[in-house]
Amino acid sequence: PPQTPVRAAMNSIAQLRVDLITSGDQPSSNLAVYFKNCTVDPTEEVLQRVESLGLLFSQRFGQAVGPRCVGLGKQVPPGLNTEEKRLSVQNFSKLLNDSTFHTSLLACALEVVMATYGGSTFKNGGYSNGGVPVETDLCFPWILDVFQLTAFDFYKVIESFIKAEPSLSKDIVKHLERCEHLIMETIAWREDSPLFELLKRTREEGPVEQAEPPAT
């Protein structure tokens, strides 16, 4: 039977709940091994960061939607197996101790949850108990502002996140793709973007290889 928008949203929510219940709220044994293989074990720092960013998110989310604040899932998806195969290394100390990587990953996970539950409802105007209008546009790129994360860094995790979570619904993949396009087309080109510094550095280092001659 044809899917109504409500049915599609309900299915996405059901799928997300299954995914979250199946994966639990602790690092998988697989991820724990990667943590142990690191020169500096990032477990404690990851736990602390998830805690502090979780609090930050809850505060801002609470301010935005009013007092009906939601509980927050606490999971860091790994997706490192493909990296191990690709690079033939098991020590991901640098990556797994990188705060920007953690923040981007958590932002991506929260964006998935908000897109699944929120859809268009977060866009509607709202008022707090005191009758004061509250911030209600929680659509992307709101999460970047909450975590003070650059779009350029958020962009880096999108593809790996989708690859690592094959059960994401079609609508959510589409949503992440829209975020990606928005970053590519506008947000990454704003004045304070780290992209410009990177372009400058690449240029100073000189061209790595000759461009291919144009085809006839």
């Binding site: 990296e83 690079l87 990556l95 920007t100 990587f101 880096k156 593809e159 993949v173 793709e177």
Partner: peptide
């Protein structure tokens, strides 16, 4: 139907993307 277009090549991944060296 909808499928995500994967842009990274086989030899690229998240490790390099976060490596600023």
């Amino acid at each position: 139907s909808h499928s995500y277009h994967f842009g990274l090549e086989e030899h690229e991944g998240i490790t390099e993307l976060f490596d600023s060296d």
